[in-house]
């Protein structure tokens, strides 16, 4: 943890500098760029690409969370129990679909642009959240549930005041997995013309410009690692509060 105290702010500063003041890094990347080629990506502002990238991920994850948690709540109620095996089968099969394949398969149906990326991110993001939400909601301590009934909470109150708060850390783990996958898949989204940071890497790959590749790779990598770390911290904090 001690390393984290130094490393975390350093990485954040590095990321901000890479996104906001890319020109500063020109000397660093210059040896990697082809002779006379551009060193720093200038076809679009890195800030707007970052925002668009994060926006896509946020929108897809928010939608996926809403749908997945709702579904998980429904199939863990007694009335929805019949659908539980089927939903698990779907989730298990879905998990074996590679994210890139989901993205590629969405293109013939939805065409190019942000649309298929959003759909692919949403569909793929559903699974980890759904899986974790079901696990969390079906493994709550029976004594607590009995006590919640005993003090006279109705079903809605029980769900809102006891089940969801207790399940939150585990659901959050699912969201974290989903976000990490979405960040990666969104990068690939650039191949179907979504506006994301993948654009920088792919431009580099197409023009043999390693400087672009490294620049884009560093920014995406840093975003992923920092967001992952932030969510881990949040989970740990919540888990402590729940008393796990």
């Amino acid at each position: 943890m001690k390393i984290g105290i130094v490393l975390r702010p350093a990485l954040i500063v590095l990321l901000l500098a890479l996104v906001l003041r890319p020109a500063w890094f020109a000397p660093v990347f210059a040896p990697l760029a082809p002779a006379n080629g551009p060193v720093i990506y200038e076809r679009a502002s890195l800030l707007s690409l970052s925002l668009s990238h994060l926006g896509l991920v946020a929108a897809a994850t928010a939608a996926a969370t809403l749908v997945a948690v709702t579904l998980a709540i429904l199939v863990t109620r007694p009335s929805g129990a019949a659908f539980r095996p089927l939903s698990r089968t779907i989730a298990n099969m879905g998990q074996t679909f590679p994210p890139v394949a989901v993205l590629a398969l969405a293109v013939p149906v939805l065409g190019f642009g942000s649309g298929p990326t959003l759909v692919a991110l949403f569909l793929y993001g559903l699974l980890p959240i759904f899986e974790n939400a079901i696990t969390a909601l079906s493994t709550l301590p029976p004594a607590t549930m009995e006590a919640a009934r005993g003090i006279g909470l109705n079903r809605w109150q029980k769900l809102m005041r006891v089940e969801l708060p207790l399940a939150l850390p585990v659901i959050l783990t699912g969201i974290r997995l989903s976000v990490v996958i979405a960040l990666g898949t969104a990068t690939i989204g650039s191949t179907v013309a979504a506006r994301t940071l993948g654009e920088v890497i792919i431009a580099g790959l197409l023009t043999n410009n390693t400087a672009y590749v490294l620049q884009g790779g560093l920014i995406v990598g840093l975003f992923a690692v920092l967001i992952y770390d932030a969510l881990v911290q949040l989970e740990a904090h919540l888990a402590r509060r729940v008393g796990g």
Binding site: L183, T187, I188, L205, G216, G217, L218, V220, G221, V225
Partner: peptide, 9 residues
């Protein structure tokens, strides 16, 4: 680290 970035790096 996202796959594309990893491959790129």
């Amino acid at each position: 680290i996202p796959s594309l970035a990893m491959f790129g790096l």
